[in-house]
Design a protein around this nucleic acid. Structure first.
Length: 482
RNA sequence: GCUGCUAUAGUGUAGUCCGGCCAAUCAUGUCGGCCUUUCACGCCGACGACUGGGGUUCGAAUCCCCAUAGCAGCACCA
């Protein structure tokens, strides 16, 4: 009824940001974006908006095992939906030559070496803080082996490049982490390669080359940040400012792309936009607006606390946005057809929006027979009021409800605490399936809803819903929230 | 096991750096009332938290120590 109130916590200031920032959103194209991605994407976007600067989209597709070719498109769609102000786009798969070149430099500096140990063997040595045999190779030997790697002289698993850190580092996660590996398959959808760079290497190199000034990401990257610093130190690069926010879970939802994919494969979910999923496209399908996602993400902020996010908070933000604009219609779930005696045929006029008369009215023709929600006749109701029409008496003496006209007076209905219910003329009812996370609800709705495809409306007394598609067979709607 | 991060009401969040203005903010939620031809919106009210234990101090949500819990990393994933 009133303008949506904008209440959002202000994000904390960033150090060294006064003269503008360069930030990035760097998803792995393994599937569509979900709420977890939205947090990173929106937080970075908000800071770029605040301080000015560039916002880089970097597609981190350096692991062919985790690249879904469709995801390149889906990620772009999701970014568009969020309305991110991206200024530059890079694909890491276009930059392998760059990574190879810098790897050679790092090896030349003695900052990395080629390791031909078996993986498991290296792991044991690392636990014991013991150098593996490869660690003692000369720079020249390493350069030679690196060229052999690039020349295809090693097969998968036979050689890798490691960044030399410190073997007695108290945190085992820091000890000589890998920077390149060899993969013979699967093939990468965009490039031909056998020597694949690993994330900690590409991220450090790209952040530097792209001039990234501030990195905001989840705290699951804290260890990666520390690893990446080694590379910065070897080259003497200036580090960006890092911020790590806490883990975010969402009640009742898996946010793991691989788990979602498995659920889709096994038939548990209908697809990436199954409304039980936390993907952005699933939210969009239900009628959640991108601005609501943005607001709620900014509200959560960049705290380092692990949180369990509640749908209620997102729904409340979304309601603020859609309630003032959503047209109202009647949807009668599980309808019961009843004839009302004693009333003359007439037309009812109902506001499209209770707070905005200028939007106009919809017209419902009363012609004796109406459809009512069966659920309203559970208990012995004596009177109900058909919204925007009139009151009816309910007589239960025959065992089934018999309705008779009971006057126009709204105050009578109030006095008797009669429920005011939605109804439909039998001649103006279109089949409608309302999909909810808890299952489908079959019912009928006003035929006028047919013109509301892709709109978010409110089914009075039921809740907000997005009209997904309209076919000759009926309407498909997705429940959003109350 | 090793390493690190975090800990304020059901949920999210402010305050914590620089101790007193905090008998702790705001939102959401729940309950009650009002308004209303929707179980929506709006309005009013209520409920509800500093993880525990020590210590420093005239004074601690805030500083220190210990404990506990949660999370993450220790991949030739990102």
């Amino acid at each position: 009824m009133n303008a949506p109130k904008v209440h959002t916590h202000e994000l904390p200031t960033l150090e060294r940001a006064e003269h503008g920032v360069v930030m990035r959103f760097a998803p792995n194209p393994s599937g569509p974006l979900h709420l977890g991605h939205a947090r990173a994407a929106v937080l970075n976007d908000a800071y770029v908006e605040r301080y000015g600067g560039r916002y880089i989209l970097r597609i981190e597709d350096t692991d062919p095992k985790r690249v879904d070719p469709d995801a390149y498109r889906m990620v772009q769609e999701d970014i568009q939906w969020m309305g991110l102000r991206i200024t530059d786009i890079f694909y890491q798969s276009d930059r392998f030559d760059q990574y190879y070149k810098i790897a050679a430099q790092l090896i030349g500096l003695g900052g990395a070496y080629v390791c031909t140990c078996e993986n498991e063997q290296f792991r044991l040595l690392k636990q014991a803080k013991t150098p593996c045999p490869c660690r003692g190779r000369t720079i020249e030997e390493n350069q030679d082996l690196w060229q052999k790697m690039l020349g295809g002289e090693f097969y998968e698993g036979e050689a890798s490049v490691r960044v030399r850190t410190s073997l007695d580092h108290p945190d085992p996660a820091m000890r000589d982490f890998p920077a390149f590996r060899i993969l013979n398959e699967p093939t990468h959808p965009r490039i031909e390669a056998q020597v694949y760079p690993l994330m900690n290497f590409t991220v450090a190199v790209d952040d530097h080359l792209m001039g990234v000034t501030h990195v905001i990401r989840g705290k699951d990257h804290i260890a990666n940040t520390r690893r990446q610093r080694y590379i910065y130190e070897y080259f003497g690069w200036n580090e960006p400012v890092y911020r790590h926010y806490g883990r975010m879970g969402i009640e009742g939802v898996v946010l793991s792309t691989s788990q979602m994919r498995e659920g889709i494969r096994s038939g548990t979910y209908s697809g990436w936009d199954d409304i039980r999923l936390g993907t952005l496209r699933a939210l969009a399908r239900r009628g959640i607006k991108p601005e609501a996602v943005r607001q709620v993400v900014l509200d959560i902020g960049i705290g380092e606390t692990d949180i369990s996010f509640s749908w209620d908070n997102l729904f409340a933000k979304n309601r603020d946005i859609i309630d003032p604009v959503a047209d109202r219609f009647f949807f009668v779930p599980d309808p019961l057809s009843l004839t009302i005696a004693g009333a003359s045929a007439r037309e009812a006029h109902a506001l499209l929006h209770p707070g905005d008369e200028k939007k106009g009215y919809r017209t419902l023709k009363f012609e004796y027979e109406v459809l009512l929600p069966r659920q309203e006749f559970q208990k012995e109701v004596k009177m109900i009021r058909l919204k925007d029409l009139f009151n009816v008496h309910v007589d239960w003496s025959s065992g089934t409800p018999v309705l008779t006209y009971a006057g126009e007076s709204l105050s009578d209905a109030r006095a008797l605490k009669a429920p005011i219910v939605q109804w439909l003329p039998t001649g103006d009812a279109t089949p409608c399936t309302l999909h909810t996370p808890d299952g489908d609800v079959q019912g009928l709705c006003e035929s006028a809803v047919s013109s509301m495809a892709d709109q978010v409306i409110q089914f009075e007394r039921v809740g907000f819903a997005r009209i997904d598609c309209v076919t000759p067979d009926g309407i498909t709607a997705y429940f959003c929230h109350k």
